[in-house]
C-alpha cells in the first residue's frame, strides 16, 4: 500500500515561559499513513498529539525531521503541501462567530481560492449531510457546541483535500452529540474516500472509527498497531475463571506467587479468579493450582476488554519503563 503521509523522525521542543528550560513535546516520532486509512493518534494530556498534528498542518516547524504529504515535503513546498490537507484544530475554535453557517463555508472556500459559485453545490450537499440546513442563516455564536463542531468539520470537508486532520473532534461534547459526530465521521470514512488522522483521548472514537492507532506518551510513540490487533492481543490473554466454592489458603498463596497480577474474589457459592496470561504465565500452571483441592471449574471466560483498559496498560507500562 502506498503511504500518503510520511512522518519521519520528528522532534519538537518548546521553551518554557520565563525560564531557560525546554519541554520536549515530540521526540523521534515516525509513522506512515496509507491512502484511505483512518488513523487514531491517541495519548494522555500533554502527550504531544496537538504538536504532531500542527507540524503536519504546517503550522509548526519541527526542530528536525521531515513530513511528506503526497510526496511533497511540507517544509520545502509548504503551500503546495497545504493544498493536500485540511484540518479542524482543537474543538470549535476555527470559525467566525459573527458570520452565519453558510457565510463561514463560503468564506473559507474563498480563502482557498474557490469562488462561491464553484462551491455552491458542494455547500448545499454538506449542509444536508451535516444536518445544518435549517441553521444555515444562523450566526455561529448562537449555535450549540456540537453544531459548531459539525460546521468546523464541514468546513474541512469543503476543501476537497485528500487528507483531513481532526484534533480532539469530540472534546467537550455531551454523549449524544459525541455519538452524532462519530456517526458523521464514520460516514465520511465509508463514503468519501479520505485519509483521516484523528487525535483524541476518547476511546470510543478509536474503537468505533480507527483502523490503526499510534499511541503516544511523553512525546514518544509507544505503540503503532491495528486497533483490532490490540484488542485481540489483550483480550486473548485475560481470563475470568469461575470455580465452585473457595480456594484454600495454600492455593491462594500459590496463586499470588505464580500470578502476582491476578485477582481473587471469594464468594460462598462461586468464586472468581482473574488472570492475565500476557506476561508468559501459563494456563496449565493455574490448573495445577486448582487441582490441589479438586476445585470444580464452572466457567472460563475470556475477558472482554475495551480500548480504554488497553490504553491505560500501554501508557502505564511505558511510564514505568521510563522512570525505571
Amino acid at each position: 500500500m502506498d503511504a500518503i503521509i510520511e512522518v519521519n523522525q520528528l522532534h519538537k521542543q518548546y521553551k518554557k515561559r520565563r525560564s531557560k528550560e525546554y519541554v520536549k513535546a515530540v521526540q523521534d516520532v515516525s509513522f506512515k499513513v496509507n491512502r484511505g486509512e483512518i488513523l487514531g493518534l491517541l495519548g494522555p494530556n500533554g502527550a504531544g498529539k496537538t504538536t504532531t498534528i500542527k507540524m503536519i498542518c504546517g503550522l509548526l516547524v519541527p526542530d528536525s525531521g521531515t513530513i511528506r504529504i503526497n510526496d511533497i515535503d511540507n517544509q520545502k513546498h509548504r503551500l503546495n503541501a497545504l493544498r493536500q490537507i485540511s484540518a479542524v484544530l482543537e474543538g470549535n475554535r476555527n470559525l467566525y462567530w459573527r458570520l452565519t453557517v453558510r457565510e463561514n463555508l463560503d468564506y473559507f472556500a474563498g480563502n482557498r481560492g474557490f469562488s462561491r459559485r464553484e462551491v455552491h453545490a458542494r455547500v448545499e450537499e454538506l449542509l444536508g449531510q451535516f444536518n445544518l440546513k435549517e441553521k444555515e442563516n444562523e450566526l455561529v455564536n448562537r449555535l450549540s457546541r456540537g453544531m459548531q463542531q459539525k460546521l468546523a468539520i464541514a468546513v474541512a470537508m469543503l476543501a476537497d483535500s485528500e487528507v483531513i486532520l481532526l484534533d480532539e473532534p469530540t472534546l467537550g461534547l455531551d454523549v449524544e452529540t459525541g455519538y452524532e459526530v462519530r456517526e458523521l465521521l464514520r460516514d465520511i470514512v465509508a463514503n468519501h474516500n479520505r485519509t483521516i488522522i484523528i487525535s483524541t483521548h476518547d476511546m470510543a472514537v478509536v474503537q468505533d472509527l480507527c483502523e490503526r492507532t499510534v499511541i503516544i506518551n511523553n512525546g514518544q510513540i509507544v505503540t503503532d498497531d491495528r486497533v483490532e490487533n490490540l484488542l485481540k492481543l489483550f483480550a486473548a490473554r485475560s481470563y475470568t475463571i469461575t470455580i465452585n466454592g473457595q480456594l484454600t489458603d495454600q492455593q491462594r498463596k500459590l496463586l499470588q506467587d505464580v500470578f502476582p497480577d491476578s485477582t481473587y474474589q471469594p464468594e460462598t457459592i462461586q468464586s472468581t479468579i482473574q488472570v492475565d496470561f500476557s506476561n508468559g504465565a501459563k494456563m496449565y500452571d493455574l490448573f495445577d493450582i486448582l487441582k490441589l483441592n479438586e476445585a470444580q471449574i464452572e466457567g472460563i471466560d475470556r475477558e472482554t476488554v475495551d480500548f480504554e483498559q488497553i490504553f491505560m496498560k500501554i501508557v502505564k507500562g511505558e511510564s514505568a519503563h521510563a522512570t525505571a
Binding site: 500542527k54 498542518c57 504546517g58 503550522l59 503551500l79 503546495n80 497545504l82 493544498r83 490537507i85 485540511s86 484540518a87 484544530l89 482543537e90 475554535r93 476555527n94 470559525l95 467566525y96 473559507f108 480563502n111 482557498r112 481560492g113 468546513v155
Partner: peptide, 11 residues
Amino acid sequence: GTLEQLCMSPM
C-alpha cells in the same frame, strides 16, 4: 483560533 485556519490556506 481562526488565525491558524488562515495560516493553513494554500494561498
